[in-house]
């Protein structure tokens, strides 16, 4: 028992160390990319006309506000020291503390990504499993055809299509943003927020569902042709019993990995979808911060998303340890 606990602690320490290295690496890379970027933050954020009209004193003031006079390494270290102490700095672009901006945008993004992640995971798993069970018969043909079509569709195009159908022609749903235009945040009800969430979440879900369906189907095919399913048939087990007793059990592990590793892809997809729908989430903020050289905000978003993806993979690892006897028992066996 004590040995077990020691193993768990060692496992967690190792993971935390990995996370620290990952975050440092990712933030340095992001910082280096912004520093090398040819975009002049002062010009980008004030606009060229305003910049040209500016007095030299004003320019110097702006330069120091955007941190142009310090060398890059020093700026990074300053940022890192503050960040480790829990101070994420000010977003120059939004002129608010980064923590505040992130928490607001992350709330929006997590609602979007979470919905898409759960829907695509469940739907993809079910559709993939059904298609795999009915190999080459009608349900499989329909599901596979749909999934291939969706997987081949660019998500921004799908987003535009959905906007056209549901917002422009049918006028059922809003075409973008997360709240109605001209209404203050506090007055917006939950129903309105959901209505704004549907189309972006649907776009994101559909592409991911296609992905997960195709992967799950392939796994299911492998399992249905495995020696143990063949043997189950030889023992007189039939269709639905084989699926319940043998296939589902064995398809769950790869499904878990797939689902949690898809966090990174959902995040990547959300950047595009948020742009198309003008949905004020992290993805959009990241694009703004990158184009405007808002270093503190960009780094904070980078670290946040790296942490999110890392957590997804960590959860997959942990669940694997619980679900797979080979890992669970292998560990205690030595």
């Amino acid at each position: 028992m004590a040995e077990e606990a020691a193993n768990v602690i060692r496992f967690l320490l190792k993971k935390m160390l990995k996370a620290a290295v990952l975050l440092a690496g990712v933030s340095i890379l992001a910082f280096a990319l912004v520093s090398l970027s040819p975009i002049d933050p002062v010009r980008a954020n004030t606009g060229t006309t305003a910049y040209l009209r500016m007095s030299p004193e004003k320019r110097a003031q702006m330069d120091s506000y955007w941190g142009k006079e310090l060398p890059a390494a020093e700026r990074y270290l300053n940022w890192a020291a503050d960040f480790v102490r829990g101070d994420m700095g000010m977003s120059q672009k939004y002129n608010r503390p980064v923590a505040e901006v992130i928490s607001e945008k992350a709330g929006n993004s997590l609602a979007l990504m979470g919905t898409a992640w759960v829907c695509s995971g469940i739907l993809g798993f079910i559709l993939g499993a059904v298609a795999g069970c009915f190999r080459d018969r009608r349900p499989d043909k329909v599901i596979r055809g749909g999934a291939l079509l969706l997987a081949a569709t660019p998500s921004f195009w799908l987003a535009l299509l959905l906007i056209m159908v549901f917002s422009v022609w049918l006028r059922w749903l809003p075409f973008g943003m997360n709240i109605p235009i001209g209404v203050s945040h506090s007055e917006v009800g939950i129903a309105d927020r959901i209505a704004h969430l549907i189309l972006p979440a649907l776009t994101l879900s559909l592409t991911k569902t296609a992905d997960i369906t195709l992967h799950t189907r392939q796994k299911m095919l492998d399992i249905m042709e495995s020696d143990y399913v063949l043997f189950a048939r030889a023992r007189g087990e039939r269709g639905s019993r084989i699926v319940r007793r043998h296939a589902l059990r064995n398809i769950l592990l790869p499904a878990i990995t797939l689902q949690f590793s898809s966090v990174s892809r959902i995040f990547g997809g959300s950047v595009l979808v948020e742009q198309v729908f003008s949905y004020p989430g992290l993805g959009q903020a990241a694009v703004d911060a990158g184009l405007g050289s808002d270093v503190s905000l960009l780094l904070a978003i980078t670290v946040f998303s790296a942490l999110l993806v890392f957590t997804g993979n960590l959860i997959a690892d942990l669940l694997y340890g619980i679900a797979d006897p080979q890992i669970r028992r292998g560990r205690s066996h030595g």
């Binding site: 020696d227 143990y228 043998h246």
Partner: peptide, 23 residues
Amino acid sequence: IRELRGREIALIPQGTGALNPLM
């Protein structure tokens, strides 16, 4: 055959991969 297998006729397969790894 489907009625009989597992009841009146039984197979002992060649490979041990015939056992479900998760059961």
